[in-house]
């Protein structure tokens, strides 16, 4: 039971820290050979354009897409959400496994980045939005799990969760408890 953490670039060590808090085994993923024995996935924040470019040399995303489509629990935060989204405004669709339309950097540049009070799974916590992507719309098969001022900033579809923000920079107990059960059991965990 290992969680694969995409480690091409970005805040992957912060996610590793979250996994250490919940005693979850992990492996860093840089190449297709790192994917064996992985039964849950985390796609971190960072720059989606860089990650897409870096994986071109070994076509990692084709293998990753297959793995996600096999139904393993998958969490994407910020750039990770962009990688998951089926449609990306001002950016490139890559994995395209989550039925949402996402706009890159839609909350503004760094000077507009903020800490905001998010309702995640019924619990309110301050989370970081850093040049964050916005969830513009989603299909009926997608359910919201996080909101800020009534705007949806997190969704779940089957076993795939995408968040606009960075819970890994906060690591509060509610998030870590949710993460622990989500990575083990997927959709069988509570949602809003």
């Amino acid at each position: 039971m290992k969680t694969g953490v995409l480690a091409l670039q970005g805040s992957f060590y912060d996610h590793v820290q979250s996994l250490k808090f919940i005693d979850q085994d992990y492996v860093l993923i840089k190449d297709t050979t790192d994917l064996s024995n992985v039964n849950s996935l985390i796609l971190p924040g960072g720059e989606s354009t860089s990650m897409i470019k870096i994986q071109e040399n070994n076509d990692l995303f084709s293998a990753l897409k297959k793995l996600i489509e096999s139904g393993i629990p998958t969490l994407g935060t910020c750039a990770g959400l962009i990688l998951l989204a089926k449609d990306v405004i001002d950016g490139e669709t890559s994995l395209g496994v989550l039925n949402t339309v996402v706009e890159r950097n839609a909350y503004g540049r760094q000077n507009q980045s903020f800490e905001g009070l998010v309702n995640l799974l019924g619990n309110k916590e301050m989370y970081c939005f850093i040049r964050a992507p916005k969830i513009l719309s989603y299909e009926d098969s997608v359910t919201p799990i996080a909101t800020i001022d009534n705007e949806v900033v997190g969704v779940i579809e089957n076993n795939i969760v995408g968040l606009s923000f960075h819970p890994e920079l906060t690591n509060d107990k509610v998030y870590l408890d949710w993460l622990s059960s989500f990575l083990k059991d997927g959709v069988n965990v509570r949602s809003l």
Partner: peptide, 21 residues
Amino acid sequence: MKIESTFKIKKGLAEMLKGGV
């Protein structure tokens, strides 16, 4: 509630650049 440009947000962008050029 939203608070812009806290030190955590400033540091946070640098965290996102890690492993990059």
